[in-house]
Amino acid sequence: MIYLELYWEFFKIGLFAIGGGLATLPFLYTLAETHGHWITSSDIADMIAISESTPGPIGINMATFAGYQAAGPLGGLVATLGEITPSLIIIIFIARFLGQFDKNPYVKDGLYGLRAAVVGLITYAGLKLFGTTLLVNGSIRIKETILYLVLVFLVLRLKKIHPLYWILLGAILGIVLHLPS
C-alpha cells in the first residue's frame, strides 16, 4: 500500500536527516532513484524553490510536497507524519532520560564528524541539482550556467537578502531570458 510505503520512507528520512531541512535533500535524491514514480530529480529543484518561499520548516514543506506528488493530498499528510514521528519519539526519550544531551562528550564527538559529513551530503545533493539544471544530455546549458555564475556571485556577497527574493528574481529572469534553454 502506497501510504504505508510513503510513511516508512519518510520515517527513515526523519530518522537520518540531522541538521535541518536541507539535510533531507540527499535522501530525497535517493528516493528519486529508488521511487522514480513518486518524484524525479528534476522535481526536487522546484520543491526546494516552493519550500524556501513558503512559511514553515523547509524539511516539512519538502516532505508534504513530495508526498503530494506521490499520492495526492493524503500522501502529503502521510509523508509529513512519517518524517515527524522519529523526532517525537527521540525528543521525548531525550527529554525524559537525557537532560543535558547536547553537552554529553560522546554526542559532541559524534557531531564533530556528523556535521562535516552533512555538508558533504548537501554538496552531493547540490551537484545533483546542478546536473539537472545546468546540464542537458551531458553538455552545458550556456544561458543557465552564465546566470548561475552571476547569481552565485551576488548571493555570496549579499547574504542578508532573504532566499524568497532570489527566487522571485530567478522567476523574472527565467521569463525574460526564455529559460530553460
Partner: peptide, 30 residues
C-alpha cells in the same frame, strides 16, 4: 509556457542558494 520559463530561472536561483548554504555550513563544520 510562462510558468515553465519562470521555473527555468527559479531552478538556477535555487542552485545559487544551495551553493550559499554549502559555503555557510562549511565555515562552521569544516
Amino acid at each position: 509556457i510562462w510558468v515553465q520559463r519562470a521555473f527555468g530561472g527559479i531552478r538556477v536561483a535555487v542552485c545559487a542558494l544551495i551553493t550559499q548554504s554549502v559555503f555557510t555550513l562549511s565555515k562552521k563544520s569544516l
